[in-house]
Design a protein around this nucleic acid. Structure first.
Lengths: 139, 139
DNA sequence: GCATACCTGATAAATCTTATCATCTCGCGG
DNA sequence: CCGCGAGATGATAAGATTTATCAGGTATGC
């Protein structure tokens, strides 16, 4: 995913750009749907300490560059995002796709009006089976 | 929330109905937005062991009676649900409201068609500020 | 470039989560 | 209504995850 735009966004949001954070973000961009712990293990060989991974995930999530979503078994998994996206998650093999269309603007406005809340955003995760798992093939 | 329907659903989905599980579910119904650990502490005085709380949450979540959602700081919080609902979460005081309208059926169908996935469901969480926090009042 | 506020890695400490096992109980069938 | 057995519970221990600490390093603004 666009490393260019990533740098820009980090700058804008006051998130310091370090090699470690870039590595963390890139990992979640290449393999969306990892848990933090899995990321720790994946980045260990690169010499990135576990505390750094935890801290980076928090920083990136706070800046809206990582999106967390609940997976079966009570796991919290993350995916790298740049703009607002919806996630499409395969329940079997955990493949994650990003859906770039969002037509919930009207829904948000309606919720604001009906509830008195000030809506700031939303997270939509769609669960299902990817084409391959759907056919009963290997994940 | 309707304890009646709860019993029915547990029966239907083969989830054994025990006083502990009912207590766990009721807690998340009365105070949606707790973490598991907070639930453990809340139910300790009632003599419910922590292992039981963890196991109950898993069982109830598996049966679709609890819904997990990611909160700031990387926390996974839960709310009791009976039917499919969307959650409206206050980012400041963490109040949780359930929204019973869902107009994403068409969206799901569209996603199926465009991606080849077999869609089985979705989770939508809307974030914002509740009326009180919106005014800058106390949570 | 320089200063400094912030980040990092290593380690230890604190928390959270799961496993184990003896006992208990829910839900079914008689 | 009662007894049976699969499954649930509680207490505790063991294991795993997450955070705190601190000395040193490095991105960023001037």
């Amino acid at each position: 995913m666009q490393t260019q735009r990533l740098a820009q966004i980090m700058q804008e949001r006051g998130v310091r750009r370090t090699p470690q954070r870039l590595a963390v973000w890139r990992l979640f961009a290449e393999e969306p749907g990892l848990t933090i712990r899995e990321a720790v293990r994946a980045l260990e060989p690169a010499g990135i300490g576990q505390a750094t991974v935890y801290r980076s995930v928090k920083a990136l999530e706070g800046a809206g560059l990582l999106l967390g979503f609940p997976a079966p078994r009570g796991e919290l998994r993350y995916a790298a995002v740049l703009d607002h996206v919806h996630l499409l998650v395969c329940e079997r093999c955990r493949a994650v796709r990003r859906l770039h269309e969002c037509r919930l603007g009207g829904y948000e406005a309606e919720v604001e009006q009906k509830t008195g809340y000030r809506v700031r955003g939303h997270t939509l995760v769609v669960y299902g089976l990817c084409p391959r798992c759907r056919e009963g093939g290997e994940p």
